[in-house]
């Protein structure tokens, strides 16, 4: 177990190093000069060069990367070019909102996905099953900005059940969490359906049924705990999927998280922020996968970590 953990931690560190290098190269190769963005249009050539020198952007690529990495190892994500603020501070200010959104999305996707999956499994082969699976397919394939705008229009503008974007109360959380969770819900409903169908075929379910237990009790007490196991391990992996979605969802709903921060930084070529958010996201994904691996053996003793 300890050896596994040590190996995975080294792997994770290497992955993060790789991500930082690839992102840095891509941003360096960008056909847009961040200094021009900072200097603005009225700046003279000498002002532009001064700013370039002050930021160290006149140095060779490898020096710039080494400097960045040096800072990173000391926990320094650098300063935003345009906001002139520590990137760590900007991310820290926005991380709680993103985590809250993710938590909401996990609850939404489990609630919707598991319910749909269970119903579909119990009504296997019926029209209910088919329509639920079509719905899940739509959920998996619909672009998030479309889903987001649709939910916003119907439930906030027309029905006025929820506020029109923003942040602060539980009511603000519902629509963005739903938007982010719908993709996972579609995915989970399919997994839950097949897992449930598998479990319902098991001998112990037949035994339970032979004992004359109520159908409701069989499903909730006997089948569900076993069917749900493989799904729990997936939640860690969801974090990676969410990281992609938050950029879109946070922008649509005006949710003050790191996705919105990244989106604004991309438009302004604010490289330190883009790097910072990318690394934090990569860290979250690596962590999520690691947790998923660690949780699995507890759920299913047949899998053992070595």
């Amino acid at each position: 177990m300890a050896a596994f953990l040590a190996r995975r931690l080294v792997q994770s560190a290497l992955i993060l190093l790789g991500v930082s290098f690839v992102t840095f190269v891509l941003l360096y190769a960008l056909p847009a000069d961040p200094v021009r963005q900072i200097a603005g249009r009225s700046a003279t050539a000498e002002t532009v060069e001064n700013i370039r020198r002050e930021l160290g952007l006149d140095r060779p690529f490898i020096v710039q990367y080494a400097r960045y990495l040096g800072g990173l190892l000391q926990g320094d994500l650098g300063r935003s070019y345009l906001q002139k603020t520590e990137v760590a501070e900007l991310i820290a200010a926005r991380l709680p909102a993103t985590l809250l959104l993710m938590l909401g999305a996990i609850i939404a996707e489990l609630a919707i996905g598991l319910t749909m999956g269970i119903i579909a499994a119990l009504r296997r082969g019926t029209a209910t099953d088919t329509s639920l699976m079509v719905a899940s397919f739509v959920g998996v394939s619909a672009p998030q900005f479309v889903v987001g705008l649709l939910l916003l229009y119907v439930f906030a503008v027309q029905l006025q059940w929820f506020p029109i974007g923003g942040y602060g109360t539980l009511a603000h959380l519902v629509l963005p969490a739903l938007t982010l969770g719908i993709l996972g819900a579609g995915w989970y409903s399919r997994m839950m359906r097949s897992s449930m169908i598998d479990v319902l075929r098991q001998d112990y379910i037949r035994t339970a049924r032979a004992k004359g237990l109520a159908r409701r009790r069989i499903v909730l007490r006997h089948a569900l705990p076993n069917a749900i196991l493989p799904i729990i391990a997936m939640i860690g992996i969801d974090i990676g999927i969410f990281m992609g979605g938050i950029v879109v969802v946070e922008s649509v709903f005006g949710w003050p998280g790191i996705g919105q921060l990244a989106w604004q930084a991309i438009q302004r070529v604010d490289i330190p922020i883009i790097m910072g958010v990318t690394l934090v996201s990569a860290f979250a994904i690596v962590l999520g996968n690691l947790l998923a691996d660690l949780v699995t053996p507890f759920i299913d003793p047949r899998i053992r970590i070595r």
């Binding site: 200097a39 603005g40 009225s42 700046a43 003279t44 000498e46 002002t47 001064n50 700013i51 002050e54």
Partner: peptide
Amino acid sequence: ATQSPGAG
């Protein structure tokens, strides 16, 4: 050192 875009 101020990096002002308006220095010019």
